[in-house]
Amino acid sequence: MPDPHSEVQAAVTLRVNGAEHTLSIDPRTTLLDLLRETLHLTGTKKGCDHGQCGACTIHVNGRRVNACLALAVAHDRDEIRTIEGLAEGDRLHPMQAAFLQKDAYQCGYCTAGQIMSAVALLDEPCGPEDADVRELMSGNICRCGAYANIVAAIQQVRGS
């Protein structure tokens, strides 16, 4: 966690889910901590905090990355999308709806990261098979083991 008493501050402007935020932050702040602790967008989850579990997956300029390994100060003016930015009002993103329909979660802690990865995957080179989806989703770990239904949800959206 960033030291709240640090005197070193850096200015950064972030565009998160369409809203612009100009902030003065400790340069150590990761995008993950900034989203959760400063902007109170707590849908993005902290799992391992070392780029291994995928719970913190967000989109930066349309591509999925691990928010825990990104310094916020290095993303000045970048377009950031989090799980809170997927739905349009009460209308869920098709991937969110598919996760509900296919029961693609258990405890739900990894789900935001799974869905952000799955939405990005729709625009990535990916073969048609379940195995292709599993390979491209391997950076999102699910402790509950909901993988079978996660793949089913993604395939449903890809097929529609």
Binding site: G54, R63, V65, L69, S117, E124, G139, N140
Partner: peptide, 8 residues
């Protein structure tokens, strides 16, 4: 690695 890591 993973797609997320390769993207960065």
């Amino acid at each position: 690695a993973s797609t997320q890591l390769r993207n960065a």
